[in-house]
Amino acid sequence: MTERTVWTILILAMIAMAFSRTMFDPSQSAGREYVKQVDGEWVKADLIDRNAGIAEVSYDRTAGLWIAAVFTLCIFSFMYRDNPFYKVAESTVVGVSAAYYMVVGFWSTLVPNLFAKLMPGVIQQWAMPGLSPEIEPTGIYYIVPLILGIMLLMRLVPSMSWISLWPLAFIIGTTAGLRMIAYLEADFLSQIENSFVPLIVFTETGIDYWQSFQNTFMIVSILSCLVYFFFSIEHKGAVAGVSKFGIWILMMTFGAMFGMTVMGRIALLAIRLEFLFREWMNIRPY
């Protein structure tokens, strides 16, 4: 039996199981999305709404549920190896996400922050009734980002692509200027400020030894790590020892970061499995 045959049988078996579960689920919940109308909008209905007789199966959302489940399985199929199912899902995610971010950028940034500043009257009549139609005194300045934006789009025209360097330079320059101040304030200064903690902590009953140890340990650890990052002097003698301790702290930090990252990914995985088992196939512990 060839590999292809085995996979075909497995996939057909999965499809058959999914359909049989959908057909014979006692609560008629598997593979279906129920909706009810609330103030004219169709929202997800729960079991109570179904028992009350006000919910109905939504065909477009049911189709969506199946598509989401199939896409999820397609992505998981990459764990075996690259395959056409994965590639279809991958191509879809590229197309949908590019368009999604374009639409979000258009409606949440360009319309309210650019067009509404330049032509408030038109935008108010068209898409933002709550906007004042009066142009702000500073509104005319927004012609600058509009021109820079058009210059940026020149990148699509090969002979004119050099023009896009100007807005790019604006982006780079403003990012450098804004980030420099922001990082100095938020990271550099505030991190140093927060590290000024008492090495010996006094309480009403005397010295809090545990808190004092924690504070001292933390400050020694920070300084040791900084010594390790200080490459202007050679790490030997006492400096090498301190730097070694700094490496140990950094290793433990990386270990903690790694642990948290793995936990985060596993949580995401659990959510996807929950989607497949509970939302799609309605398989629950009770």
């Binding site: 820079l148 940026l152 699509l156 604006f170 403003t174």
Partner: peptide
């Protein structure tokens, strides 16, 4: 302005 250019960059 940076946000505006970022949104236009998505169009790009």
């Amino acid at each position: 302005w940076f946000d505006i250019l970022a949104a236009i960059a998505f169009i790009l």
